[in-house]
Design a protein around this nucleic acid. Structure first.
Lengths: 214, 214
DNA sequence: ACCTGAACACCGTTCAAGT
DNA sequence: ACCTGAACACCGTTCAAGT
């Protein structure tokens, strides 16, 4: 068979198969041949729809980021609640597809969903009274925190094996092996603690700013 | 030539050549054959010193994290200053070798330098009066923020091309293409703003905690 | 336009062979 | 013990050929 009367592939079909494969088996398992096999075609077929494999993964990353709720930014002047809500939705979108996060972090500048997000945050913060330079920084620092939390699950690093943590080497890590069990709880707790601290700290800065300004 | 009278390679030589190659050309350029060529040997020779390529990269990541200054944690009870100093040193160590950061984030649990760091932070925070559960979270959330900031330079995402940001699509990104120029400044500003906010927010939490406790 | 198989220049890793 | 070349099962991507 050569060219079929109706196309076998489409960008959407390729992207959703790639996302399913990433979720099921991780980034490593996404090769062009493997992905093509999953779609019932041969490897080179993909190049009729995307120029490179990276372009496919870019599109996958974009659909993940597109899941982030941005509605809180056209609401009103409660930027504190908006940041909290956005942060949680952003993190939820990433942790739903953890294997794509390392790729996602490589630079969202050309991905529409990332741009929409940056635009919404900037617009929301400036509308709430933040100067433009601050609004830019807030968008960036929130992204750092959320991406970092989704990427490197802190607790995932600890092995479920007491012998790995000799108290002579690490006097304070006696319970570290237990963390493997509580992985989720530690990550969620650290994320919530950090998110709250971040927003609380920004409130202080906002107060200083308006005290000087007004 | 087969086995030389004195070994041509050592783990240290391999790791430092790998780090130099990562810094010069990025993670993608580190293949076993290329790295071996850089060392004047053939590809499979590396397997006499490391079991896998990932083990080599793990060792590279470890040497990077080993650069982080941890002295502030055995100083005294000023946990605020310790977190600020640690955060800056941590970020400096990572941004000195940006190409290894995506790999580094994959999980530091088995890397000695990462464990020493976690241990020092935990010890410092508990010594300063934080309950153990909080100390764990603080170590994690700081790592999220620093890793995120080193990994995904926010500004790097924006292209130096005004036409990429149609105001019809992104009403608030009119100046976005200028960010490419100010990349460093934006990242540093966002990092400092976020670090300060984070620590300020933790101070509030600490006050609440001790107010309830005492 | 959209698929195919063959081909190119790579990978990480294994292994028998050499000293 | 530590290096080598050959080999295995893969890669991403190109391209001429088919309809």
């Amino acid at each position: 068979m050569a060219r079929p009367r109706k196309p076998l592939l489409s960008r959407e079909r390729i992207v959703s198969a790639a996302l399913a494969l990433v979720d099921a088996e991780g980034l490593q398992s996404v090769s062009t041949r493997r992905l093509a096999a999953e779609l019932g075609v041969s490897g080179p077929s993909l190049y009729n729809h995307f120029a490179t494999k990276d372009e496919i993964l870019d599109a996958v990353a974009d659909t993940v980021v597109a899941q982030v709720d941005l509605s809180m930014f056209d609401g009103g002047p409660d930027w504190r609640a908006a940041l909290l809500g956005w942060g949680r939705s952003y993190r939820a979108a990433l942790t739903a597809h953890p294997h794509i996060v390392p790729f996602l972090a490589q630079g969202p500048g050309r991905r529409p969903a990332g741009l929409r997000m940056a635009d919404a945050v900037f617009g929301g913060m400036t509308a709430a009274g933040w100067p433009p330079a601050h609004a830019t920084r807030i968008g960036a620092l929130m992204r750092y925190f959320v991406a970092g939390s989704a990427l490197g699950s802190f607790a995932r690093g600890f092995v479920d094996d007491a012998s790995a943590y000799d108290p002579a080497d690490y006097p304070h890590l006696g319970q570290a092996h237990l963390l493997a069990d509580h992985q989720h709880r530690v990550d969620e707790g650290a994320f919530e603690t950090g998110l709250t601290a971040l927003v609380d700290g920004l409130v202080l800065q906002y107060q200083r700013l308006t005290a000087i300004g007004g």
